[in-house]
Amino acid sequence: MSTSVDHAHPAESESGGEPADAGAPHPLDNPVWAALSGAHARFAEVRGRAARYPAEMSPFAAVADQADPAAWHDLAGLIGPGGTALVTGSPVPPAGWDVVEGGEGVQMVGTALRAEHDPEAVRLGPGDVPDILDLIARTRPGPFRTRTVEFGSYLGIRENGRLIAMAGERLRPPGWTEISAVCTDPDHRGRGLASRLVRAVAAVIEERGDTPLLHAAGNNTNALRLYEAMGFTRRRHPQFLLVRAPKTDAQGRPDPA
């Protein structure tokens, strides 16, 4: 059931991270906007101070200022009356917007990560999408669509021709690249495949001059423990919200219903 929202509480920074209100905004505080207005501008569908990825690529959307009602108005125009989008950071949806679902995540930066290429990792591309979607269905690491591979480098490990593990790139705020879609077939867990692929994707990222980051669900204690052991450090606790824009009547006015 959706919940009508009038305000949202900003995410708190982890110890050692930058406070949300200290100086200029950090690109990781609003990473989707930072990516869509930077390295991923070629993908961006833009209206005023709002942007989103193509629907077949990602459900992510963003506003330039997460507390600015005018920017949210632009986003409503971009996704349409009653349309939905996934937003992250410290979003403050104005009155009239609904939160369909949401939760707290953990943003982690790989400043102490040992990155290294893996000889068994193979590059995945558009031709591998059916196999990727099959693995995603078995593991459910998060949203993955037919064009998600266009975000960047995706690496996988195959066994007897079957894709059994993968990881890849997603958001690219300036100076950073997110590692995402980390998953291993349930029948092949416990072999360290996910760790190997995270390090391999990180090697590609660092060769480009970026620093790896990733996001994990706040309640995924096993993943958080693994990533910390690999050298990732917790930076902050962003919100991940699937929001629905206000519905409007035929004249474009807010629908009281």
Rank of each mutant, 00 (worst) to 15 (best):
M1F: 08
H7A: 15
A8M: 14
A8V: 13
H9R: 14
H9K: 13
P10R: 15
A11T: 11
E12K: 15
E14V: 13
G16Q: 11
P19Q: 11
P19C: 12
A22H: 11
A24T: 13
L28N: 04
L28I: 04
D29F: 11
W33I: 02
F43C: 07
V46Y: 02
V46Q: 06
V46E: 05
R47M: 05
A50E: 14
A50D: 14
Y53L: 11
E56H: 12
M57Q: 14
M57W: 09
P59A: 03
P59S: 06
A62R: 11
A62D: 13
V63T: 12
D68W: 13
D68A: 15
A71I: 01
D74Y: 02
L75I: 06
L78G: 01
P81W: 03
G82N: 03
T84K: 08
A85F: 03
A85I: 04
A85S: 06
V87M: 07
G89P: 08
P94D: 06
P94S: 09
A95T: 12
A95D: 05
D98Y: 09
V100S: 10
V100F: 13
E101R: 05
V106K: 01
Q107K: 00
M108S: 09
V109P: 02
G110A: 00
A112I: 02
R114D: 11
H117S: 15
H117A: 15
P119F: 05
E120Q: 12
V122Q: 05
V122A: 10
R123L: 13
G125C: 07
G127E: 15
G127F: 07
V129P: 09
D131V: 00
I132G: 02
D134A: 11
L135T: 03
L135V: 00
T139Q: 01
P141D: 01
P141H: 10
G142T: 01
R147V: 00
T148L: 05
T148F: 05
G156C: 03
E159P: 06
N160Y: 12
G161Y: 15
G168I: 07
E169M: 11
R170D: 13
R170E: 14
R170Q: 14
L171G: 12
R172H: 15
W176K: 10
W176I: 09
S180M: 00
T184Y: 07
D187F: 06
D187T: 12
H188Y: 14
G190L: 08
G192T: 04
L193Q: 08
S195Q: 13
R199K: 11
V201K: 07
A202V: 10
V204A: 08
V204M: 02
T211Y: 06
T211A: 03
T211V: 14
L213T: 13
A217D: 09
N220A: 13
A223M: 08
L224N: 03
R225T: 03
Y227I: 03
R236I: 00
H237C: 02
H237Q: 03
V243H: 00
V243E: 00
T248R: 02
T248A: 01
Q251P: 00
P254G: 04
P254A: 05
D255S: 01
P256K: 00
